[in-house]
Design a protein around this nucleic acid. Structure first.
Lengths: 115, 115
DNA sequence: ATTATATATCGAGATATTGGAATATGTCTA
DNA sequence: TAGACATATTCCAATATCTCGATATATAAT
């Protein structure tokens, strides 16, 4: 207790969260849930300019979230580490807990009023 | 398979990750690990301007990551939901080179999140 | 009431990020 | 080799973000 967290870990976390803090990139990650896809599939799915999608793929790749494989003129991206989905789930659970505690509050109020 | 993830969930994730994608804010979260602290303690710990720290606290509060309590002229902030630490752990685990200990972390996370 | 203290908010400058058009690079095919 | 295709990179404008100093607001103390 009391020791400051290392600058390095802090910066690592920052890089990961920054890579995830864009809905276009989050959508790419969701799209790759079922396996690798070539850029030519990702572009129309995402519906933004080719350069935009390519750039976002590069950001996810450099953040260590995606892996890529080149085959001829195509490039296939895939989730590098499925733990990323646990991370997303953990984020979602922050939302669920909010709702849960909100409904607990509502229940408590109801009891207080009716009971 | 194939259904697009909802825009709302995407935006929720984006907001959470955006709030976490700054090392000053990540450091604040670490500092609050052991319990609530008043702003007057957080400011010197972080070592940035008072307005900067106040603004970052506001961002974490509005993102639903921190809670606050006012007592006289002091304001105390605390972690709203300890699940945030699972989220941080999940991020860290992306970094782990040792697959064995990584999968331990994954197991622990899975239990914590799903169980 | 006046002053000191604690925190939040406003405004500005520096920097970063986003997305798209244009261009570059690399690879296949005829 | 020329041309078509797939992807990455460069350049730029718009927007967002970070930090700070100054100011505002609220509470406590004298």
């Amino acid at each position: 207790m009391g020791d400051k967290i290392s600058r390095g870990l802090l910066r690592f976390r920052e890089r990961v969260f920054k890579a995830l803090s864009d809905s276009t990139r989050l959508e790419i990650i969701e799209y790759l849930k079922d396996g690798e896809r070539c850029v030519c599939e990702i572009i129309p799915y995402i519906g933004k300019a080719q350069s935009t999608t390519s750039k976002n793929l590069g950001i996810l790749f450099r953040a260590g979230i995606l892996d890529k494989r080149e085959d001829g003129k195509k490039t296939f991206y895939r989730i590098k580490n499925p733990e990323i989905f646990l991370l997303l789930k953990a984020a979602d659970s922050l939302n669920l807990k909010d709702l849960a505690s909100a409904s607990e509050t509502v229940d408590a109020l109801r009891k207080a009023i009716e009971g």
